[in-house]
Write a protein that binds this DNA or RNA. Sequence first.
DNA 1: TCTGGGGTCCTAGGACCC
DNA 2: TCTGGGGTCCTAGGACCC
Length: 424
Amino acid sequence: MIALVDCNSFYASCEQVFRPDLQGKPVVVLSNNDGCIIAANKEAKALTDIPMFEPVFKIKKLLEDNDVAFFSSNYTLYGEMSQRVMNILMDFSPAVEVYSIDESFLNLSGIKSINYRKYGLSIRNRILKNTGLPVGVGIAPTKVLAKVANKIAKKKSGLRNVFVIDTEEIREKALKNTNIKDVWGIGRAHVKSLKKIDVNTAYDFTQLPSSWVLKNMKIVGLRIWHELRGKSCLEINELPRSKKAIGTAKSFGERIENFDLISEACAYYIGEVSEVLRQQKSCASFVHVFLNTNYHSKTDKQYSNGITVTLPVPTNDTLVLTSFAHQALKEIYKPGYRYKKVGVNLSGLVPKKYIQGNLFAPVLPPNKDGLWEVIDHLNFKYGKSTIQSAHAGFPESRKKWELVKAHRSPRFTTQWNEILKIST
DNA sequence: TCTGGGGTCCTAGGACCC
DNA sequence: TCTGGGGTCCTAGGACCC
């Protein structure tokens, strides 16, 4: 049996933990640049139709009228709260797959003579007690069924957020009550074609011939079909595999035409991604840089372009990567446009130990591993950008392109000067 | 005026090899 | 008129996830 533990409206719940005054009140969390809504607690969802990913400016009045509390996203806080939850889960199973910031699969198969419902309840209670975060627990023989069970656990009242699928009757009933669009792995495109042939529930889907599924939804769809019928096809992956690509791209706080500012943002992002690259002890073979204007705008001239550079020798040196990215940006930048976003992506990631030299490249650059180790350590200890490439700009100029986060809560758990204060 | 960010997996088709 | 058979590697694009 597999358990899926998933935090309820995770970002909104994290904000509420430190703001008891908001218990029972509608809360939403906004995306970068406070652009749109990315999380809403159940009060906010119930309130009206606050559609997820709706641009904030379109529903500002709705939020104000209903006294909805809203926060800019505070990933430092969410990441650390997530750690706490995952650490607790390790106590409940020797095999945990951390699937995303707010959910994990637990392999329960090694645990003998266990009452699944009781076990699920104790997971839920312990997390609530130790972190203040509410979770839902779904337990079933396969991952996709555990997802189904989790959804039911959260939706149906009286279950105390725990639901177990452990008999044929329960499975069938659960599938009949699950809309096909709510099945994990079946997205918009497939829902559309399934509706056309009158497949509306997860149960309907399991009644299709496997040949149809394979032909129209390929192997990915067939796996889901098997999983829903109770045959496990998706394993629990305990070890996070190293990333195959690392990228970042953020919209500017305001539109920018100036090349130097864009290049500064680009260098700053290279600093971020190369640090992640060093953490996983890899080097990148390619660096991709792209640039675009605001495609929502009906009045601005539109332009977007991207370019991939092959590095002579894979590297994770921020300064080397910055220099190649800068050259690449020069090639695609065209003056006279109001740019909205620049992004970088490192790919062709190879383990640092196995770097292939290049017969035709200039002599290998000197090894600076020690230097970067020290820099990364200082930035960890004293805060981001304590030491960085000068190309990545100074706080003054950074303000011109940095994200807008007008409503961010304090980083309660990671900054001494932002720690929660309690007055009597 | 204002519209997020970071990923993975799979497939078809082209180019190429012997 | 009629032109083999068995592969690999790479890339772009689709679909999906949180």
